[in-house]
Structure formats: structure tokens, C-alpha cells
Amino acid sequence: MPDEAGAMRVVAAMSGGVDSAVAAARAVDAGHDVTGVHLALSRNPRSYRSGARGCCSIEDAGDARRAADALGIAFYVWDMSEEFADHVVDDFVAEYAAGRTPNPCLRCNESIKFAAVLDRALALGFDAVVTGHYADLRTAPDGTIEMHRAVDAAKDQSYVLGVLTQDQLAHSMFPLGGSVKSDVRIEAERRGLQVATKPDSHDICFIPDGDNAAWLTEKLGPRPGEIVDEQGAVVGSHDGAYAFTIGQRRGLRLGVPADDGRPRFVLDIEPVSGTVTVGARESLTVDRLECIKPLWCGSPPVSLHATVQLRAHGAEHRARVRVAEGAVDVELTDPAEGIAPGQACVIYDGTRVVGSATIARTG
């Protein structure tokens, strides 16, 4: 635990990108005893994204090591490939096969970075894990740790951290929560870190070329089915319903145009029959969410007026949230479009993250 001066033994999770490098540097500046760790998420790193994208490639591991050397801290590679495959990759495939739309980054934070990594760090005698996520941690008057949105709204990552529990937050450090990305890059350059100008990562790390549909087809094989309109008339066909997501407009390859000539969107995916239903954009609007598997950053609420975020970089929606018997019912004051089962609903009270749940049904 922290010594009398507040210094701690911490693991800095270093992805090979600029954010995690600067976060580690700030932890060193704060007087902590920092050990850099890079996560090996694949036994064959070339099977994941290659190039300087800041997450899981061989180049990223080298960038992380060079950053640790520049900071003068110890550096290790932890093999998390088995855990990553079980909890993130396999979950991603299973969710799409079931007609749902998962968020693998959120699942990685829940199961890998703040579960497997944190558990290992604590077992080894470390006090906390430092990451380059953009979120702000504050200590409430009652001593609990609150997670708030980052200062840089464009980089805020509180949505993908909404799965963290109070115990995990108490052993986490996010040094970049009060910074904007441009300043972080300037700081990295000033410190002589080679990753200062490295591009951000946007794609799913375990899909090398970013082609989700082709990758899922390779994993699941062809599963032909029909595309129908809201009246049930067949308007096209496909090789696998897992290649679609609710709200999708492009790549539908419909053989029959809409009567009014307007674009059509994916409204529903039926995984058993493989039927994909398309229709007008207005039919995507929902104002009710039924959510399951809630995870709370602090004490579970019973009922509250809040805002919810339904995509990683989506808008906030005003909502009434009710919690009962492990289920979360959300009534949206501000309706949303294109919301798919499997997505995360992250609940906010102002800037504070209350918790998250998985969307099971919309209405």
C-alpha cells in the first residue's frame, strides 16, 4: 500500500501508444515506483493488426519497450493471449452469431485490463494499475472513488470504462483525465518519446484489415439468409446475418428498391433463421431499453433521472433509469436511433459514471 509520502508501487499498462507512455511518465513524476507492462494478446502478434496503430502488434511492443527505456523504468511483457481469446475474441464471435452487436474494447477493459491484469498486479504486491485512458477519478466526501468524464470531450473514454467496479476504481490511475490530447502529444515530444506523433488506434485490434464481415465469415462460415422489408417481402439475400448490424445503411446490396426510393436501414436481425429486416430510418427510433448484467461503479441506484450513452462516441440521451432484480429499465426522454442488442448502456449522473448494463431489447 502507499507509503507515508503517498508513493505506490504501480504497474503502467503500456500499449505502445503515446497516451500510455505519457501516463507512465506522469506516474514516475508523481514519485511512484513504476513498472511498465505490455500485454501480449496473441500468441502470433502478426495475426492481429500490424503497423504503428498503438495496441497489439509487434511494432507496438517495441514502441512500449523503447518508451519504458526512455523513462528509466523496468519493463515486462505479460502473456494475456489465452484470457484475451476466451473473454474478448470468442465473446465477440458468439455475440455476432447470436445477432447482437458487442463492444470488444469494453469487454477487454472489464475482463483483461482491469480484471486479469489488476488481479495479477495485486497478487505481485503492486498497489494500482496506471493506464492512458481519458477519464477522471475523484474521491467523494464519503471516501468512495468516483469516475467522471475526461476534460477532453473528444477523447473521453469513460464509456468503455463504465464496467469498472468500486474495488477496481480504487486500484486504478488515469493520469490523463484532466488533459487534452494535443497537450499530451506536445508533452511526449518534450520528453523525447518516439511515440509522440504515432497515430491513434481506431479499429478492432484482432481484425487485421478492419473488415469485420470477412473476418466473421472466416470464423463462422457462410450462413445464407434472406433480407426482407417490414412487410416480409424478400428484397435481397446475404451470406451471413453476422455481417450486419442494426442501423446499417451501406453494403446491403438490395435487389428491390424501396417504393419511395429512400435509403433503407437494417432494423432487425433474426439469428436462427438468418433473416435480416430492412426499412425506413424512422423505424430505427427507440425510446425504451431493457438492459441486463448491470455493473455499478459504486452503490446500485434504485431509480434516477440521468443521461445514458449508447455508443463509444455517441451522444448523451436524457433518461429515467429504474433498477430492479438485476435488470435495468431505461426510458429515453431523448429517443435514439439504430440501437442494437448487445451494445452497452452507460449511465451518467452529470459527469459521473454510475454504471453500465448490456442492452437486451429495445422498443
Rank of each mutant, 00 (worst) to 15 (best):
R149D: 08
A150K: 07
V151M: 06
V151H: 12
D152K: 14
D152N: 13
D152Y: 04
A154Q: 15
K155C: 03
K155P: 10
D156F: 09
Q157G: 07
Q157W: 02
Q157Y: 12
S158K: 13
S158Y: 15
Y159R: 11
V160M: 11
V160K: 04
L161I: 09
G162E: 13
V163H: 05
L164E: 03
L164V: 01
T165S: 15
Q166C: 14
D167N: 11
Q168C: 10
L169M: 10
A170S: 15
A170D: 10
S172C: 10
S172V: 00
M173C: 01
F174I: 00
F174P: 00
F174H: 01
P175C: 02
L176T: 02
L176V: 06
G177R: 03
G178V: 01
G178C: 00
S179Q: 09
V180P: 00
K181S: 05
K181H: 13
K181V: 03
K181E: 06
S182L: 05
S182P: 04
D183I: 01
D183P: 00
V184H: 01
R185H: 15
I186N: 13
A188T: 08
A188I: 02
A188F: 04
E189A: 07
E189Y: 02
E189K: 06
R190C: 05
R191P: 04
R191L: 14
G192M: 14
G192W: 13
L193M: 07
L193E: 02
Q194T: 14
Q194W: 10
V195D: 06
V195P: 07
V195N: 04
A196Q: 01
T197K: 12
K198E: 00
K198G: 05
K198I: 02
K198W: 05
K198P: 03
P199V: 05
P199A: 03
